[in-house]
Amino acid sequence: MSFINYSAREINCKIVYYGPGLCGKTTNLQYIYARTAPAAKGKMISLATETERTLFFDFLPLSLGEIRGFKTRFHLYTVPGQVFYDASRRLILKGVDGIVFVADSQIERTEANIESFENLELNLIEQGYELEKIPYVVQYNKRDLPNIAPLDELRGLCNPKGVPDFEAVATTGFGVFDTLKLVAKQVLTELRRGK
C-alpha cells in the first residue's frame, strides 16, 4: 500500500524480497545498501538470529530520485525464508506494492524454491492480494555456483507467468540493481495506471 504525501511531496512504496531460506534476500539488500550514496539511504535494520538468519525482517529505506517534484521513497523488506516463520512472512506482506521473488539456482534447492513460491501465492491470497495483480519480478540468484539448474528449468518452476526475470549473483552485485530498478519502475507504473 503506497503512501502519497502531498504535504511532504513524497511517494512512498513497499517492496518485499521473498524466497526460500538462504537464497540471498538479505544479501541483495546488503549489496544495495553498500552501493548507495549515503544521502539516498537510511539505516539498514536486520532483525536476525545469533547465527545471522533473518528472524523477522530486514529493512532498508531508499530514495530513488524525484518525479515532478515528488521524492520517490522505497522501503525494501525481506521476509525470513525458513519454513517455520510463516506467520512473520504474512505480516511483512501486508501493504506490499511490489515483490521480488529470489530463487536459489542450486539444483538441491529446487524443492525449496517451489515450496516458497507456492507459499508466496498462498500468503498473498490470505492478505487479499493476487500475485497476478501485483508488480513482481523473479531473480535467479547464485548463478556463479557450479551445481546450478538450467535457466529454462528454473523459469518453468518459479516463473510460470513469464514476468520479467534476471540472473544474479547477489554477493558480487550482478543483477541486483537491475532487479530492484525494474520492480520499482513497475510499482510506479502500476500506481499511475490505477489513478
Binding site: 500500500m1 503512501f3 504525501n5 502531498y6 511532504a8 492478505q127 492480494y129 500506481l191
Partner: peptide, 13 residues
Amino acid sequence: MNPDLVMYEEEFQ
C-alpha cells in the same frame, strides 16, 4: 485490503 494512503496538505495540518 486497505486502499492507498493519501495525505493532503489540509489534513496534514
